[in-house]
Each structure stands twice: as structure tokens, then as C-alpha cells.
Design a protein around this nucleic acid. Sequence first.
DNA 1: CGGCATCCAGTCCGATACTG
DNA 2: CAGTATCGGACTGGATGCCG
Lengths: 130, 130
Amino acid sequence: MSDTKPVDAHSPECMKVSQVLSRLGDKWSVLVIMMLRERSQRFSELKRGIEDISQRMLTLTLRNLERDGLVSRTVTPSIPPRVDYELTPLGLSLAEPVQALGMWVFRNIGELSAAQARYDARERDHTSAA
Amino acid sequence: MSDTKPVDAHSPECMKVSQVLSRLGDKWSVLVIMMLRERSQRFSELKRGIEDISQRMLTLTLRNLERDGLVSRTVTPSIPPRVDYELTPLGLSLAEPVQALGMWVFRNIGELSAAQARYDARERDHTSAA
DNA sequence: CGGCATCCAGTCCGATACTG
DNA sequence: CAGTATCGGACTGGATGCCG
């Protein structure tokens, strides 16, 4: 890219980037993507895999991902019904940069936590030094 | 990479990843990071650069980034006061994977929009076919 | 100029209950 | 098993006004 003048926050492109970023930033999307990266899974597998996600939020998250074309939904009309979710090629390709970001965080957890601790400590000083 | 068993959603690492992701997912953080990627900037430069950000949100966003050690804040006690913000090395290194993600979105805007349009069209059918 | 405090609307998300 | 509907609390983000 090498955009020398980088941010035109109003271009449709930037809007889309924000949009995707806020999807990824929601509470569960990335977790779901990461779970599906390995293999397609049923609704209840995902639910168990993530544990403290509510049924409602899992449904909503999957719908959103589906809408973005990142996840596909396959209904098998048996009894009981069975629904499998899997990453589309698009979703799979997204998983890569997401993973890269995850690795960055992983590498820098220490720095991050230290910075936060420092900041909070300074905060406390200011507040208590009244 | 090549983690065969990827998601332990309850590990402190994953919590941190989520945390950072939701910071990036908030409305303005990425925009600010991208603006600072080029050069350090004053509060009002950032404000003008992003335009429809409110003063309040710019302040909050910067505080959060500062807390995470991604941005440093330099006060010059002149009159009128002057405050410069710049990416720390940590923030700069974060900008890379973020940029990668941005590029992914950029490359896939078409797919994304198409998928959304398709989904929404199907939605409308279902709803109107009542 | 930079920033905090207040107030308020909109949204997100969890708990619960019900359906095919 | 998978999903929808409803409600209520918490949080996010915008507008405004005041302060150093």
C-alpha cells in the first residue's frame, strides 16, 4: 500500500474497515472464528467450546458472521435438527490477519499489562494526592 | 502459528486478546493509531484529522491508548498549552498487524458487501413471504 | 488549547421463557 | 437441538458547559 497520506476516515473503504473492526471487536466473533478455523462445528459444540456465551449471543454472533459471508450455515433437517457452521474461504482468509493480531497481543501481553499497571498506579496517586 | 489446539477462551492470554480486540473495535482507536503512524500530532490536529470525533471521545480514546502503553502524551506547559501525542514503539508495532487487517478488508470489500447484500435480500424475502 | 463533568439517547448483552 | 421473543441493566458515545 505505502499510502503516504493514510487516513481518509470518510472514504467508503475506511468505513468498511471500521465496520469489520467493530464486528471483530464485539465480544465473541473472534472466538467463534478461531473455533471454526480447525473444523466445522455444530451449534452446541460451539456453545460448549466457548462456555460462558449465552445461546442468544452465539446465535447473534453467527448471524452476523454469516451476513458478512465469513461463516456458512448448513441445516440438516433431521430429528433432532442439526446445524453446522463452518468458515467460508473468505472467513478462513480473515482468520490469518486476525491470528497475526492475536500473536502480536500474545507477544506483548507483558508490556501491555505493565503499561496498564503503571498507568493505574499513577492514576491512584493523583486521585489520592488530593 | 501452528497451534493445533487453538482456543482456550479462559486463558489469561485469550482474555487479553479479547481486551485488545475490543479496544481496537471501539469507534475511534484504529483511526487514531493510523493518524499517529505517520508522525506525532497535537490534540487539535487529531481532532481536525478525524473530523466527526467529539472532543470527549478523542480524549477518552487517547487515554485508553495511553493506558495500554500504545500512545505517549507530552505536555508543553506554554500558553496556550500544547499537548502532543505519539505512538510508542509498542504502538508502532501494533500498527503493523492492524494495517494487515486493514489491507485484508480493503482487498475483500467487494466480497463483504456482496455477501451482505445477498443476505439482506434473502432476509427481505423471508419476511415479506409471510 | 486541551480537558473534565454532567446529562441523555442508543446500543449491547445477559437472563429467562417459549417454539419447531 | 437450535432458535426466537422479551425485558432490564450496563455500557457507549454525543452534546453541552465549565475550568486550567
